[in-house]
Design a protein around this nucleic acid. Structure first.
Lengths: 120, 120
DNA sequence: CCCGACTTCTACGTTTTGTAGAAACTCGAC
DNA sequence: GTCGAGTTTCTACAAAACGTAGAAGTCGGG
């Protein structure tokens, strides 16, 4: 239940890179300015997507203010880390998976991991 | 393009736990015996699913033998590790993601990771 | 009370997945 | 060489997810 469509992901990307909660109109405008191909969408389209993302638990909104304001529930990093755990979760032999995972990580990242594991 | 449906996942699970390449009939029979709810499917259904999994690059088949034999292209562990890298790949700040990931790993697994990172 | 901005409801086209019958193919038996 | 049982491929359809947006409803300021 964690997979996102293309537009859904674009919206999440905008929410994650926004410093504050955004309105639907705001997001609509920013979607039109995306490098490459700018999507010129109706506001209702954006609102529909936001509702679906809310239902999926990725987005929450302030209902008090008149144009509702939307924000991502968790940071992009937390979300990604959770996805990784989700993938790992289905495995029978978690250690074997971790071994493969570590095996194909860059040396720089391996060093980072060593540090993180030492301090923890 | 890596996400799987429920039946597709069941088939992959069977292929991953099979010691040798399996025929469609073989898989059909084993699907009927799954704990909980056994799916009683037509063999053409299984063949369709196998074709789709082949197109997705998760399954390969021996076309020489008369009942074709199907096997998973990679182990379950390799596949899962790749999914984890795939999730990580979309991140801008990979180190931050790794920090979150490590943060929510059990102590036993942290120990395993330390060992793996030391020997590598 | 009315208008315009905003939100919700409803809807439809496309893609993905589950499901399988119909048609085509293959190989051994006769 | 042909026939049939077993296999595979083709075609099809229903349900869910997603992209997309018009129509209808709601709310606050004037």
């Amino acid at each position: 239940m964690a997979s996102l469509g293309e537009l859904e992901r674009s919206v999440m990307d905008l929410l994650w890179s926004a410093p504050e909660a955004s309105t639907a109109n705001d997001l609509r405008d920013r979607l039109a300015l995306v490098e490459g191909q700018g999507k010129d969408l109706a506001v209702t389209t954006v609102l529909t997507v936001l509702s679906r993302l809310e239902k999926k638990g990725l987005v929450e909104r302030e209902r008090g203010t008149r144009p509702h304001r939307y924000r991502a529930v968790s940071t992009r990093e937390d979300h990604t880390a959770r996805l990784m755990h989700e993938a790992l979760g289905t495995a029978t032999d978690r250690e074997a998976v971790l071994a493969r995972f570590i095996g194909s990580v860059s040396e720089a990242e391996a060093a980072t991991l060593r540090k993180l594991l030492a301090s923890g």
